[in-house]
Nucleic acid binder design. Structure first.
Lengths: 157, 157
DNA sequence: TATTGTTATACTCTATAACTATA
DNA sequence: TATAGTTATAGAGTATAACAATA
């Protein structure tokens, strides 16, 4: 064949998205099954962690960082606020804005939920060594970084 | 600190799932926006590719490979069959089974949809070199391999 | 009695447009 | 007029149970 691209790379280019989709779905399901019924779902944990890492945020910035539509962030925050894991307060400087802040209970919940996420990931990535998981994390983090204006996520290295 | 685990690895262990979820969601959205309205969604492409790579399958095996509930596979196949991309026929040996097979039109559609997926992935992974994408692909493929009894997916190397 | 595929249903997730209150 | 947040709604994705046909 006179194919200019090495065979291996062609299949690589075509197949990452299906694998991502698969792994995410299986991981979310495992996380859901692990948690107590009615507990926080993955999206809640992600939002709480974002607040923990970046501090108080307007909902607009939160939506952008999560790559969610602002209208969808509303319901997510409602659920977190009902459980007193998060506090919304008006920005005195611009009374249109809501500043969202993690509550002490929210911070505790992040720790609990993180524990569960660790268990799930340990099972999800049994095939990989610690170094490989670190590599995977790094690659994903860099890829995510370009999909958003400003998201370095859990970049606490 | 007497922590037995290096600091770097701790944050790694906690954070892969959120990154996967984020990247998958963004990728699916990009794929959806790219395609002509009413076209095949990502899950259709994944199912067609599976059939292309593994050949005719019972729906049960298909469900397992896709990590979908068999009841959800029904609707997916209905949509593919309506477009004549796939053919269901009774297994003469066991008349309970439906053998699902890719049609010639289905095979052509895989190629078209793959093209679009390539574009999406090129944008999704601009931050990564070809080698890094190959590494990512390999790591994901190995991780997926353990989440399923038998899924080596696009392992055409 | 167990298995394959199917139907029905409820709930979550996502995208979109219209609305309000502030600026 | 534009922006931050909200509401409402429709469609896609997922989990579950019950069912028919066949083994």
């Amino acid at each position: 064949m006179t194919d200019p691209t090495p065979e291996g790379l062609i299949s690589v280019r075509q197949g990452v998205l299906p694998l991502l989709e698969h792994l995410t779905r299986v991981g979310k399901r495992a996380y859901l099954n692990d948690m107590d019924p009615g507990g926080l779902r993955l999206r809640h944990l992600i939002a709480l962690r974002l607040l923990a890492e970046r501090g108080p945020q307007g909902q607009q910035g939160l939506a952008e960082a999560l790559s969610l539509d602002p209208s969808n962030v509303v319901g997510l925050l409602n659920e977190l606020e009902e459980r007193d894991l998060v506090v919304r307060r008006r920005d005195p400087a611009d009374r249109r804005r809501h500043i969202v802040e993690l509550s002490p209970a929210g911070a505790r919940e992040v720790a609990v939920a993180d524990e569960r996420a660790v268990d799930v990931e340990d099972r999800l990535f049994v095939a990989l060594t610690a170094e490989e998981r670190a590599t995977l994390f790094d690659l994903l983090r860099r890829a995510v970084g370009t999909t958003l204006p400003a998201c370095e996520f859990p970049a606490e290295d």
